[in-house]
């Protein structure tokens, strides 16, 4: 009897360790800082402070597609060389920060972006967050519900306002590796409202080459597949239930 209890304890310990090893979720920053970036590809080298960028404030106005497709910002930080020259020519940040649509890229405004390190002030953040559906994760805002309710209307296209997300609504059910974990559900429609197809295909999800069998949590936690956005900017991975609706969250 004693021996069986010992074996059971060992098994439980092993399972806990295995789970911890596979699903070590990264610590989350404070809600007002979730999705913040400090961009320093060329700033410091040019004698300027790095640029603070808040996904939170920008996604209120624009979908991911506007910046990560139309304006040419690569999804990976540091891959795009954003220069002052380009901004002044109306590219990258300068496409909106022109002094008309948003504050301009001219003297007097430099330190609004070249802060070195900063965060959105808590008062503004709190005011915005209070008006939007809450979530325990990320910025503390349920962005899908926010969009559904029409509380924000981020632009899908900066240059062609008539463009609308394509109505591709295929839902994929992906079986989990572990038998006790219910399948993950991927909804194209909810992603298509924010993104262009080419944001994910083929670079992040090359189904033909890699097949869906490789969409494992260990890779996702390494920043691959869903982890490309989820965990950094989009809904963090702590929220198991949104992707695995069968999981009962405590």
């Amino acid at each position: 009897m004693m021996r069986m209890a010992l074996v059971l304890c060992c098994l439980l310990l092993a399972a806990t360790l295995a789970r911890a090893a596979f699903y070590q979720l990264p610590p989350q920053p404070p809600q007002n800082r979730y999705g913040d970036l400090l961009l320093d590809r060329v700033s410091s080298a040019a004698g300027q402070k790095p640029v603070f960028f808040s996904h939170f404030t920008h996604r209120l106005r624009d979908t991911c597609r506007v910046c990560h497709f139309e304006l040419g910002f690569a999804m990976k930080q540091g891959e795009t060389e954003i220069t002052e020259e380009a901004n002044r020519e109306g590219m990258y940040c300068g496409a909106c920060h022109d002094g008309l649509m948003a504050f301009g890229h001219n003297k007097g405004h430099c330190d609004r972006c070249h802060t070195g390190d900063a965060q959105i002030d808590m008062e503004t953040f709190g005011q915005i967050r209070q008006q939007l559906p809450p979530s325990p994760w990320g910025n503390g805002i349920d962005w899908s519900r926010t969009l559904d309710a029409g509380l924000i209307a981020p632009r899908y296209s900066l240059y062609h306002p008539e463009e609308q997300p394509m109505g591709y609504d295929k839902r994929l059910e992906l079986s989990a590796n572990w038998s006790m974990v219910p399948p993950a559900v991927f909804d194209h429609k909810s992603h298509g409202r924010w993104l262009d197809c080419n944001n994910c295909h083929p670079d992040v999800f090359n189904i033909r080459k890699k097949t869906t069998a490789h969409f494992e949590m260990r890779y996702i936690l390494e920043g691959k597949f869903c982890g490309y956005c989820h965990g950094k900017v989009a809904l963090p991975l702590d929220d198991c239930n949104t992707c695995h609706p069968g999981i009962k969250m405590r």
Binding site: T83, E89, N198
Partner: peptide
């Protein structure tokens, strides 16, 4: 050269990747 060409190249490359992907799949 220049930022505009760089940006258009980015968009065309993204598009090309997706079109090739659709063609293959």
């Amino acid at each position: 050269a220049g930022p505009a060409a760089k940006l258009w190249r980015f968009r065309l490359n993204q598009c090309r990747g997706f079109v090739d992907y659709r063609l293959k799949t």
